[in-house]
Amino acid sequence: MMKGSVSVNSPRIRAVTNWVFLRAAGGAQRPRIMSPEQFFPEARRLEARFPALKAEVEELLLRREIPRYGTFDPVRAAQVSEDWKLYYAYMFGQPNELARTELPTLLEFAESTPNVVNAFVSILEPGVPLPSHRDPYAGVLRYHLGIRVPTVKPPRIRLEDEYYTWKEGEGVVLDVNHEHEVTNESDQSRIIVIVDFHRPLGFLAGLLNRYMLRKKRKWAPQFVEASRYDVMHAA
C-alpha cells in the first residue's frame, strides 16, 4: 500500500495540469454551485434510489466506526481536518469490496457510471469545521447528496462568496477547486454521499485528465483499505 498523500505529491506537475484544466473550464469565471441536471445528469439514477441508499448508510453507521481522515492521509488531514470521517466505497476506479454488501447502491452506481472517479460517505460531527481550503486536483467536479442533515442550525458550505445548505435527498454539484469552507454548528452530524466525476473539458484537456487520473490509481488502496478497517471490532 502507498504511504504519503495523494494530495501533495508532484506539486509542480499538479500545478501545470490544474492550470490547463481550469483554463479549459472557464478560469475564474467558472461556476461554483451547479445543478446536477446540467453538469451530472447521471445523478438522477442515484437520487431515484435514495431510500435504499439512505438505509444502507444508516445501517453502516450502526455496524461500524468510520475512520477519520487523519488515519489514512495525515498530511492532507493536518491542512483540512483530522476529524473528518470518510468511508470510501470507490476510489480512482478501485472498489472497496466490503461496499458490495455495506453500500451496494453507491458502489453499483459508481461502477456503472463511466465518468465517476470516487464515491464515498462524508461525516462531519458537531463542532468539526473544514477550514478554508481548495481541493488539490482540478480535474474533477464534486456531487453532494444529503443523507442526514440537521434541521436546527443546518450545516452549510461556502464557496468564495456563495453558500449552499444541504438538504436530505437533494443533490448539488460543487467546484471545490474554488476556495471553500464548511461549518457545522448544530448538535448533530451532517452525513452526505460524495461522488467525484470528470470535469467537462475539451478534447485535449480531457485526454490529459484521464491520463493523470489513471496515474493516481496507485493511491487507491490507501483510502479503500482504511475504509475496510473496523475500529469497533478491533477495539
Results as ranks from 00 to 15, higher is better:
M1F: 09
V6G: 03
S10I: 04
S10R: 15
R14N: 13
W19T: 11
W19Y: 05
V20W: 10
A25I: 07
A25E: 10
G26A: 09
A28C: 00
A28H: 09
R30I: 09
R32D: 12
R32H: 10
R32F: 05
R32A: 15
I33M: 08
S35Q: 14
S35F: 04
F39W: 15
F39V: 12
F40A: 15
P41I: 06
P41Y: 06
E42K: 09
A43M: 13
R45I: 00
L46V: 03
L53V: 05
L53Q: 01
A55T: 06
A55I: 03
A55V: 04
V57P: 11
E58R: 12
L60Q: 08
L60D: 06
L61E: 11
Y69V: 01
G70S: 10
T71Q: 12
T71H: 05
D73G: 08
P74K: 02
S81P: 05
S81G: 06
D83Y: 10
W84G: 01
K85S: 14
Y87L: 03
Y87C: 03
Y88K: 00
Y88H: 15
Y88D: 00
Y88V: 00
Y90V: 05
Y90P: 07
Y90K: 03
F92Y: 15
F92I: 00
G93S: 03
Q94C: 05
P95D: 00
N96I: 02
R100G: 01
T101F: 02
E102D: 15
L103P: 07
L103H: 02
L103G: 09
L106I: 10
A110W: 10
A110C: 14
E111W: 01
T113E: 07
T113N: 08
V117K: 04
N118P: 02
N118C: 09
L124C: 10
E125T: 02
L130K: 04
P131R: 13
P136R: 10
A138P: 05
G139T: 11
H144Q: 06
L145W: 04
P150R: 06
V152E: 07
V152I: 11
K153R: 15
I157W: 05
D161Y: 07
D161A: 14
T165P: 01
K167C: 07
K167W: 03
G169P: 08
E170W: 02
V173R: 08
L174R: 12
V176W: 01
V176H: 11
N177K: 02
N177W: 14
H178K: 10
H180S: 07
V182K: 01
V182F: 11
T183H: 13
N184R: 04
N184P: 08
E185L: 15
E185T: 14
Q188A: 15
I191A: 05
I192N: 13
V195Q: 08
P200I: 08
L208F: 08
L208G: 08
R210D: 14
M212H: 09
R214P: 00
K216Q: 15
R217H: 13
K218D: 01
W219C: 04
A220Y: 00
P221H: 02
F223L: 15
V224G: 00
Y229K: 12
A234N: 14
